[in-house]
Simulated scan of single mutants.
Amino acid sequence: MPDPRPDALIHDPDGGMERLVEIMRRLRDPETGCPWDLEQDFASIAPYTIEEAYEVADAIERAAWDELKGELGDLLFQSVYHAQMADEAGHFAFQDVVKTVSDKMVARHPHVFGDESREKSAEQQTADWERIKAAERAGKAERGTLDGVAAGLPALTRAIKLQNRAARVGFDWPSTGEVIDKIAEEARELVEARDQMTEAEVFEEFGDLLFVMANLARHLKIDPEGALRAANSKFTRRFRAIETALAARGKRPEDSDLAEMDALWNAAKAAEKQT
């Protein structure tokens, strides 16, 4: 006779984390699960995991707190999904995930959970955090300065992490002035590449310029991903203003020209500065 407890748990609104884990287990049940879920593997689910993380960030950026609850749930479900597949493969279970991150947080906060003093600056706490992480990497046989920086990170974010690692061992420009000089140099090289070099060489020079721009952001203590998201939002806002103004004239962007749209862009920009 089937055990009635899993069904009761699945339909229990107060079932908590145990309920979510059971829902995931049932979705992947070889006999009664969802056909789509049963076809998935780590690689096929990974893009959804990344997408859900971005949707969390988007909700936070828009201060959409009602939406954030659901987006955090979607992201949590991704962790449960990967843990279920790992459990099926005999790698680890969800409780192992919970234990691992809990142990890590306790070990990395000796000033909270251990006997170290809390009377230290934020800078000292950051230095201690990095020292502990370096010891963890050594335990994983990650000996190189850049070992452990995930290749799957967004490129700008990974650039910052790589540069931060290199800077800790002294490989860094001493001030923003040198970085700006390097940006000018890379820009010149890109122009030369455009005029004289192959498509592959242009691609490489453009990447070099972006990498140095990320370094400038690091020196200015700016999150380049956040800055670019803000620029994207500004562009979207102003282009929509162009579309609205054109619609009032009975036109669409494809019915306009660059001069008219540029004038409307400047008008939208001026209006924003007045608010």
Rank of each mutant, 00 (worst) to 15 (best):
M1K: 10
A8P: 01
A8R: 15
H11S: 12
D12T: 08
P13S: 02
P13W: 00
D14E: 14
E22I: 01
I23T: 09
R25G: 07
L27Y: 05
T32S: 14
P35C: 03
W36P: 01
L38M: 12
L38G: 09
S44P: 08
S44V: 03
I45S: 09
I45P: 05
Y48S: 13
T49V: 14
T49D: 02
T49W: 14
I50M: 14
E52R: 10
D58K: 13
D58C: 00
A59Y: 04
I60D: 06
E61K: 07
D66M: 06
E67I: 01
G70K: 05
L76V: 06
S79L: 11
S79M: 12
S79K: 01
V80K: 07
H82N: 10
Q84D: 15
Q84S: 10
M85Q: 11
A86V: 00
A89I: 04
A89Q: 14
F92L: 15
F92T: 02
A93F: 04
D96H: 11
V97Y: 15
V97F: 15
V97C: 13
T100E: 10
V101F: 11
M105P: 00
A107S: 14
R108D: 13
H109I: 00
P110Y: 00
H111C: 02
V112F: 08
V112S: 00
F113K: 04
G114A: 09
S117G: 03
R118S: 13
R118G: 15
A122Y: 06
Q124R: 09
R131N: 10
K140I: 00
K140H: 10
E142I: 01
R143W: 12
L146Y: 05
D147C: 08
V149S: 06
V149T: 09
G152R: 12
P154M: 02
P154K: 01
P154Q: 00
A155G: 05
L156R: 08
L156H: 06
T157A: 14
I160T: 04
L162Y: 02
A166R: 12
A167H: 07
F171S: 08
W173E: 11
P174H: 09
S175K: 06
E178A: 11
I180K: 13
I183K: 04
I183L: 14
A184T: 10
E186Q: 09
A187G: 14
R188V: 07
E189R: 00
E192N: 09
A193F: 07
R194W: 12
Q196N: 14
E199R: 10
E199H: 11
A200Q: 13
E205V: 04
D208N: 07
L210R: 11
A214C: 15
L216H: 00
L216Q: 09
I222N: 05
D223M: 03
G226Y: 03
A227E: 07
A227H: 00
A227Q: 07
L228S: 08
A230G: 08
A231Q: 15
S233Q: 08
S233T: 09
S233L: 13
T236L: 14
R238A: 04
F239L: 10
A241L: 07
E243W: 04
T244Y: 05
A245L: 03
L246M: 01
A247M: 08
A248H: 09
A248L: 08
R249A: 12
R249M: 09
G250Y: 05
G250V: 03
G250W: 04
R252W: 05
R252P: 03
R252G: 05
P253T: 04
E254Y: 10
S256W: 03
D257F: 00
A259T: 15
L264M: 03
K269G: 06
A270I: 06
E272Q: 12
